[in-house]
Simulated scan of single mutants.
Amino acid sequence: MNRTGRILLVTALVGVVGMAFRVSWNALRDIANAIGADNTAATLYPFVVDGLMALALVATLVLVDQDRKFALKVLGTYTIASLVLNYVHGLVPKLHGSTVDWGRLADWDPANWALVLLATSLPVGSIYFGSDLVAKVLHHRPAPIPADTANAEESTETEMIRSTADLVESTPPPVVAPMVRMADPVAVDFIKSTQTPKLAPAIDRVPVASIERRTVPAESTRPRRATGRVPEAARSTRPKRTPAQLLDEARAATADWADAQITAEGIRRTVHTSPTNARTLRDTLLAERAAATA
């Protein structure tokens, strides 16, 4: 929405809220007169109730997390209180002409006590909750925008306002190499038979497209360094075992194992051999056990 549309929307909202406040102001003023407020206090009473609702609404737009939930609770509480008092004002016609008894808002005593308590406690609550909301708004610090998000938004805006002339030049179309017309085979055979140095007239000289140059890594002429023999101290002291010896050791080690425990990893760790030998030993042992069971 453009700026003009936003201004018109806010203006219409302010007008509707102002008219609604005027309607509520009449009811709340009569309620204030009924609970013993003088003319000045009764005139200011609607600003105490409905004004705090507006303040709580603004606070919900600024605060976050727990503070925002607190502002929503205040807004909901004072909205319900204003609705109840307006409802009572509509049910009691005597309030409209200020002929009702002082301190009497309902014929039933418990309801009257509750309504008087509600009407008299709203100003005190406005002082407490309003001060708390203002303090929370003043001490609120908005969370910093991450640098990556800011850079991304800035780059997006830059691409959007970028003119067509500033864009990178489009990729040129591929160059098609011209076709080379080869010599007629009949003319070539005739030239070879006559052994004349004349060339066949059918050959047309057409420039051939330039061949793309590619960088080829240079091969090193330096001879590879010969590795020396492994010293005796670094060599393994364990003699190399034959497949038969490995099988005997695996049989002895897995004699009391269950079939599910015979795995290549378990045999490799127990016999200390390579994974390939361990898999071979596993297959052999499982085959032997299957044959013995059969």
Rank of each mutant, 00 (worst) to 15 (best):
M1G: 07
R3F: 03
G5P: 00
G5C: 02
L8S: 05
V10T: 04
T11E: 04
L13W: 02
V14R: 06
G15D: 01
M19T: 03
A20Y: 10
F21Q: 11
F21N: 10
V23Y: 03
W25Q: 02
L28M: 07
D30V: 00
I31Q: 01
A34P: 04
I35Y: 02
A37P: 00
A37H: 06
A41S: 09
A42Q: 03
A54M: 07
A54E: 02
A56Y: 00
V62M: 11
V62F: 09
V64T: 06
D67F: 02
K69L: 12
F70A: 11
K73G: 09
G76F: 10
G76W: 09
T77R: 14
T79N: 06
I80D: 05
I80A: 15
L85C: 03
V88I: 14
G90Q: 13
L91H: 08
P93D: 12
K94Y: 13
H96T: 08
W102P: 03
W102L: 10
W102A: 12
L105S: 05
W108I: 15
W108R: 14
A111Y: 07
L117A: 09
L117D: 07
A119M: 12
S121V: 13
S121K: 10
L122K: 08
L122Q: 10
L122Y: 10
V124I: 12
S126E: 04
I127N: 01
Y128W: 06
L133W: 00
L133I: 00
K136M: 13
L138H: 04
H139K: 14
P144I: 01
A147S: 03
T149Y: 11
A152T: 06
E153T: 08
E153L: 12
T158D: 01
M160D: 11
R162Q: 10
T164L: 08
A165Y: 15
D166G: 11
S170H: 08
S170F: 12
P173L: 15
P173V: 15
V175G: 06
V180N: 02
D184G: 00
D184M: 05
V186C: 03
A187L: 10
F190G: 09
F190I: 14
I191R: 13
K192F: 05
S193T: 09
S193H: 06
Q195T: 10
Q195P: 00
P197Y: 05
L199F: 04
A200W: 02
A200V: 15
A200G: 12
A202F: 09
A202W: 11
I203W: 15
D204M: 12
D204I: 11
V208Q: 11
S210C: 05
E212Y: 04
R213S: 15
A218F: 14
R222G: 12
R222M: 13
A226P: 07
A226T: 14
V230C: 12
V230H: 03
A233C: 04
A233W: 07
S236W: 02
S236H: 04
R238M: 15
T242F: 15
P243W: 11
Q245S: 09
E249Y: 01
E249P: 00
E249L: 09
R251Y: 03
R251D: 09
A255L: 14
A258P: 06
R268Y: 06
R269N: 11
T270Y: 01
V271P: 01
V271W: 00
P275K: 13
T280M: 15
L281M: 01
R282E: 07
D283R: 11
L285K: 04
L285T: 04
L286V: 02
R289C: 02
A292C: 01
